[in-house]
Design a protein around this nucleic acid. Structure first.
Lengths: 125, 125
DNA sequence: CCGCATCCCGGGGGATACTG
DNA sequence: CAGTATCCCCCGGGATGCGG
């Protein structure tokens, strides 16, 4: 997933954006980071089922795309904090209507029972 | 891609929505259908690079998800028209901010030259 | 605690050919 | 024209293990 590096290959803004958030866990990471900056392990705990490799690679891609900021502290024990950049915040805002749509049309109604887990997420859309 | 049939597995509305639009060409199909209903071949011509198999399977999934409506006419030569359902229209609306974001932050600026192709798409976000 | 390296697997999706 | 049927390949991403 080379993400955004395909100048000229996009036919509209949406598929360009899809390329940025195209990873299986990308939007969930954005989601988790939306409320507050997180450390690596903290993030991992907030995303049940994700593996370290995938989390690390997704974070790197998001960082390359200017969506998340990575702040490493040279301490012992090592500490790294991830947070959203201004661009990341704006992306999240742009994602909000889509999240609302999913809630309304997929989670809502027949699948409403899933909403219980939803409270574990940050602010919710 | 069994799409939406994962009740309880979604942690928030966004990943539920991502599941619906998770195919490589899904958003482009929605995009093309947004303006006017299209026949199969017409759609294929509007999506340079897509193969018939993939277009057919994506259309079927979108139909199963209640996003597109398929109208088959028993004529000769055969004719099938695809169009967005009300749900599809609302999904497209929810996608609009994301498209605007992509235009602003990816196509805009360094990649602005790509915008020429964009005029070929329906209304544009 | 943070994160990279390696191995491996499944399935999404491309190419091609065929049918109603 | 509107698909279906196969074959095949690539790579996203899961598991595991090591290094700073």
């Amino acid at each position: 997933m080379a993400t955004v590096r395909r100048p000229g290959s996009y036919v509209c803004g949406i598929d360009a954006a899809m390329d940025v958030i195209g990873g299986k866990w990308k939007v969930l990471i954005l989601w988790a980071l939306n409320e507050r900056p997180c450390r690596f392990g903290e993030l991992r705990r907030n995303l049940p089922g994700i593996t370290e490799k995938v989390l690390a690679s997704h974070l790197r891609e998001l960082e390359e795309d200017g969506i998340v900021h990575r702040e490493a502290y040279d301490e012992v024990p090592p500490r790294v904090e991830y947070s959203l950049t201004a661009l990341g915040v704006s992306l999240n805002a742009a994602l909000a209507p889509l999240g609302a749509w999913g809630r309304e049309n997929i989670l809502g109604g027949a699948y409403a029972h899933a909403s219980a887990r939803e409270t574990a997420a940050p602010t919710a859309t």
